[in-house]
C-alpha cells in the first residue's frame, strides 16, 4: 500500500466517521425532545459540517474549502446565538 493510498483511505474513513457524527446531531435536531436539544443538535451539526469541509480540502488539495468552512463556522455561531436568545425571550432583536 503506497502512502498516498493509505492517506486516501484514512481520509475516507474520517469522512465516514464525521458523517456518523452528523447523523447523531441530526437525530437530536429532528427528535428533540425539547427545543434546546434541537438547537444543540444544530450547533453540533454545524461544527461537524465544518470539519467535514476541512477533510474535503485535504482530499482534493485545494484551499478553496477553507473559506467555505470559515463561513460555516461564522454562520453557525450567529445562528445558535440568535436561536438561544429566541428560546430565552421569544424574540431575537429587542
Amino acid at each position: 500500500m503506497t502512502p498516498t493510498l493509505f492517506l486516501a483511505w484514512s481520509i475516507t474513513a474520517a469522512q465516514v466517521m464525521l458523517g456518523g457524527a452528523m447523523g447523531c446531531a441530526a437525530y437530536r435536531l429532528l427528535f428533540g425532545p425539547r427545543a434546546q436539544d434541537r438547537v444543540l443538535g444544530l450547533d453540533t451539526f454545524y461544527v461537524n459540517a465544518m470539519l467535514m469541509l476541512l477533510t474535503f480540502g485535504v482530499q482534493t488539495g485545494r484551499t478553496l474549502y477553507f473559506e467555505a468552512s470559515l463561513a460555516i463556522a461564522l454562520l453557525g455561531f450567529a445562528g445558535t446565538v440568535a436561536l438561544s436568545k429566541f428560546l430565552m425571550r421569544g424574540e431575537v432583536i429587542e
Binding site: 502512502p3 498516498t4 493510498l5 493509505f6 492517506l7 486516501a8 484514512s10 481520509i11 474513513a13 474520517a14 469522512q15 466517521m17 464525521l18 456518523g20 457524527a21 447523531c24 461544527v47 461537524n48 470539519l51 477533510t55 485535504v58 482530499q59 482534493t60 488539495g61
Partner: peptide, 25 residues
C-alpha cells in the same frame, strides 16, 4: 483520492485527521 504527499507527511496527516474525526464522533 488524496494529494501526493511524501510518506512521512501522509502518515502524520492521516493520523491527525482520523484521530480528530474519531473524537468528534
Amino acid at each position: 483520492q488524496a494529494p501526493d504527499l511524501p510518506a512521512w507527511a501522509a502518515f502524520i496527516v492521516a493520523f491527525l485527521i482520523v484521530t480528530g474525526a474519531a473524537i468528534t464522533l
